Computed example of a mutant assay.
Amino acid sequence: MRAKIFGGLVCLAAAACLGLPAIAADDDGDKPKFKTKEVMKEAFKGPLLKKVAGGDASAEDVKKLHAMLVALSKNEPPRGEEESWKELTGALVKAGKAAVDGNDDAAAMLKKASNCKACHSKHKPS
């Protein structure tokens, strides 16, 4: 009986150890891949967000936009309260994830979440 329990625990521990690199690869930690200025220039001022929201983007473009929105949410707000920053960027990340998943509401979610004035009035540096 003890041997079976011990064997089961060893298998469980081995499975957990094998899964750790995959989990670590999904989450690059707290360090964002893109700076806020990069996201603003490429995604919002550039064509990326419009292409994805309009349904004209490739799967690669959709994934890149989502990665940029995740990075934006991990960046520090240039000014204003962090709680507001997390709320606004969280909506963007959720909309980006919906686009990656092929959700029919993704375009509307992206258009609503990417309201420039809502974020800039609270967080854009002077």
Rank of each mutant, 00 (worst) to 15 (best):
G7R: 04
V10L: 12
C11K: 11
L12E: 06
A16T: 09
A16C: 10
C17M: 14
L20F: 10
I23K: 15
A24Y: 13
A25W: 08
A25F: 07
A25I: 07
A25V: 11
D26N: 13
D26C: 13
P32N: 03
K33Q: 14
K35L: 10
K37T: 09
M40Y: 12
K41V: 09
E42H: 10
E42V: 14
K45F: 09
P47N: 11
P47A: 13
L49N: 11
K51Y: 02
G54A: 04
G55W: 08
A57W: 00
S58H: 03
A59D: 11
A59H: 04
A59C: 04
D61K: 04
D61L: 04
V62M: 02
L65R: 02
H66T: 03
L69Q: 02
V70E: 04
A71R: 00
A71D: 01
S73W: 03
E76W: 08
P78D: 01
G80P: 02
E81K: 15
S84V: 11
W85I: 01
L88G: 05
A91Q: 15
L92R: 11
V93E: 04
A95R: 07
A95S: 08
A95F: 07
A95K: 08
K97Q: 15
G102I: 01
D104T: 10
D104V: 10
D105E: 15
D105M: 08
A106L: 06
A107G: 07
A107Y: 02
A108F: 07
M109E: 11
K112N: 12
A118R: 14
C119T: 08
C119M: 04
S121T: 14
K124R: 15
S126A: 12
